[in-house]
Design a binder for these strands. Structure first.
Lengths: 141, 141
DNA sequence: TTAAGGTAGATGCAAACGCATAGAACTTGA
DNA sequence: TCAAGTTCTATGCGTTTGCATCTACCTTAA
C-alpha cells in the first residue's frame, strides 16, 4: 500500500464523514445536498454556465443532471436559455428566487463547514486548499 | 468566505474530479464503485463488521446499504451471520469469492490512484493524509 | 457542398436510492 | 419485572439515478 493510496483512502473517509455530518444538519429546506450543490456552483460562476461545464463540477451523470435541472427549472430556481453561439447548447443561470434560496441555505451551511474544519490549524487549512486544488487540476492525460 | 470554506470547496472539487476519473476507468467488472467500496471496507477490517459500523464508512443511507448487502449476498460475495452477542445485529464478512473479486479490482484501481496522486510531492501526500485523518476523526459535537 | 464523425443535451427504462416506518431486541429506571 | 425509550436492520413506496440511445447541431475535409 503506497502513501498515495493511504492518502486517498483517508480523503475519501473524511469526505464521507463530513458529508454525512452536513447532510444530517437541518439547513437544507426542501432541497437535497446535490440540488444545493448545483445552485451553489451556478451562484459562483456567475455568468451563465453550460450544462457540460456544470457537469464537470458536479458528481452526477449527464442524464441525471439534465433531469435535475428540469426539476429546478420547474421549481423556478434555475433558468435554461438557448446558447446563441451553439444551438445544441444551453445556458444555465439562477433565477432571483434561486439565488435567494441558495443564499439562505448557504449561510448556515457555511457556518457548519467552518465549524467542522476548525479542528485544523490555519497552516493545515492552507495546505489542504493547495493540495486539493492541485489534485483537481490534474485532468486526465 | 473563510479559509475553511475555500478549503472544503476545493476538497469537494478534487473528490468529484478524481471520482469521475476513476469511475471512467475500465476496472470495475460488473460492480459499481459503491459496491466495490463495501467490499474494500470489509476486506480491510477483516473481523466481521456490523452493518451500522460499515454504514459509518460508506456514503449511503442505512436502507440503501441494507439492500446493497442483500445483493452482494445473493451474488455470493458477502456473508451475513447473526451476531451472537446481539440478536438484532448482523455480522458481515467477505466470502472467499468476494475477497478474490475485491483483490482483482483493487490491484488496477490502486495503480490508478497512485498515478492520479503522483502530482503531489511526498511531503504533500503526507500532509494530506494527516489532515484528512484529523477531519475524519472529528465526530460531531 | 456535403458526407462522416464528433459533441450537447434529452429521453426510455430498469435498477438503486432516501424517507418514513415497522418489528424485533437491547437498556434503563421505577 | 416490566413499561418506556433506544438501537439495529429490514421493508413499502415514490423519486432519482445510470446506461444506452436518440436527435439535433457543429466541424472537418474532400
Amino acid at each position: 500500500m503506497t502513501r498515495a493510496n493511504e492518502a486517498w483512502e483517508s480523503l475519501m473517509r473524511a469526505y464521507a464523514v463530513l458529508m454525512k455530518q452536513f447532510n444530517a444538519e437541518d439547513v437544507w429546506g426542501d432541497l437535497t445536498m446535490r440540488e444545493y450543490d448545483v445552485l451553489y456552483t451556478l451562484s459562483k460562476c456567475d455568468g451563465p454556465l453550460r450544462m457540460s461545464e456544470l457537469n464537470r463540477h458536479v458528481l452526477l451523470s449527464q442524464p441525471a443532471l439534465s433531469r435535475m435541472v428540469d426539476r429546478l427549472v420547474d421549481r423556478g430556481l434555475v433558468e435554461r436559455c438557448p446558447d446563441p453561439g451553439d444551438r445544441r447548447g444551453v445556458r444555465l443561470s439562477l433565477t432571483p428566487e434561486g439565488r435567494k434560496v441558495q443564499q439562505e441555505i448557504g449561510r448556515p451551511h457555511a457556518r457548519s463547514v467552518t465549524r467542522a474544519l476548525n479542528v485544523l490549524t490555519p497552516e493545515e487549512l492552507e495546505q489542504l486548499a493547495v493540495i486539493t486544488a492541485k489534485l483537481a487540476g490534474n485532468e486526465e492525460k
